[in-house]
């Protein structure tokens, strides 16, 4: 009787320790993917705000090229997604047009566009905003603040890119209106910044590849890519997005990102 109890107890201890060990070492790929995404987010937290000039070079398969110029202001919001404003400078016919976005962690983003020709602010009333940004190969969802909650994750493997150690993770958009089924992201193991993203469309074919180049560190912590190259593999079109003149800590306030601030944005 006692012997049997002892045996049962021993078994329990053994099984328990086995369970504990599994938890400690064999983390699920989903959990590990999420952990990496959280670390990426964590390291980019606290920048406050920044403004930057953007230049987009569009290319089609025929070899034509076209330039777009815009400026962006971003303000970090604790507890929710960032707020941003993009002011368009060129093409000239959309000069002064400004896009205000409140990103949210779980709900769809709110967006307003100011049309100077109409002198009116219009809300973008569509649940489905995955079209091309300014005719480029970037979709708005590629450029917006990459909140952790917008995807679910899965760690794939540790790998190398350009001789540097990477985490390769897969992430799946939560928004069913996303243009993508999944994305594969190469994350720098040292700096926890994305180096490359492969975008897969709804039929899970490789659609686009985004490569982040020319990284610079600001305020001793925050990495920003100076050149993002997006190649569409299906249409042969490509876009090079260049970021210039990053300025951090401009002291932006909530009122700089109000709807009526759009009209003043020049």
């Amino acid at each position: 009787m006692i012997k049997r109890d002892l045996m049962a107890a021993l078994w329990l201890v053994f099984l328990g320790s086995l369970l504990g060990m599994t938890q400690a070492t064999a983390q699920t790929p989903e959990a590990r993917g999420l952990e990496i995404a959280q670390e990426v987010n964590h390291r980019d937290t606290g920048f406050g705000d920044y403004q930057v000039d953007m230049e987009m070079l569009l290319r089609n398969q025929h070899g034509d090229e076209s330039l777009r110029y815009m400026r962006s202001r971003v303000m970090e919001v604790s507890g929710d997604g960032d707020k941003s404003m993009i002011i368009f400078d060129r093409p000239r016919d959309v000069k002064g047009t400004a896009l205000l976005t409140y990103t949210h962690k779980s709900e769809p983003d709110d967006q307003w566009l100011y049309l100077p020709a109409l002198k009116r602010v219009k809300r973008i009333a569509s649940r489905n905003k995955s079209g091309p940004f300014m005719g480029s190969e970037f979709a708005y969802e590629d450029l917006t603040s990459q909140e952790v909650e917008k995807y679910t994750y899965r760690f794939l493997q540790e790998t190398e890119l350009n001789g540097q150690p990477m985490f390769l993770i897969e992430r799946y958009p939560v928004d069913e209106n996303s243009g993508y089924k999944k994305q594969q992201v190469w994350i720098n193991q040292v700096e926890y910044r994305a180096e490359k993203i492969d975008f897969y469309d709804r039929k899970e074919s490789l659609l686009k590849t985004l490569v982040f180049q020319d990284y610079h560190q600001y305020l001793g912590q925050y990495w920003r890519s100076g050149e993002m190259v997006m190649q569409n593999h299906q249409t042969g079109k490509s876009t090079v997005l260049t970021w210039k003149n990053f300025q951090f800590r401009n002291g932006f306030t909530e009122s700089d990102f109000k709807k009526n601030a759009l009209k003043r944005a020049k």
């Binding site: 368009f88 093409p91 016919d93 959309v94 000069k95 047009t97 896009l99 967006q111 566009l113 049309l115 100077p116 020709a117 109409l118 219009k122 973008i124 009333a125 569509s126 489905n128 905003k129 995955s130 079209g131 091309p132 940004f133 300014m134 005719g135 979709a139 708005y140 209106n177 996303s178 243009g179 993508y180 469309d201 709804r202």
Partner: peptide, 19 residues
């Protein structure tokens, strides 16, 4: 300008693939 801005607004509202 107005026409261009209409189009911009419209394009921002379009889903994937229907640009």
């Amino acid at each position: 300008e107005l026409a261009a801005q209409y189009l911009l607004l419209y394009e921002f509202s379009l889903p994937f693939g229907l640009d």
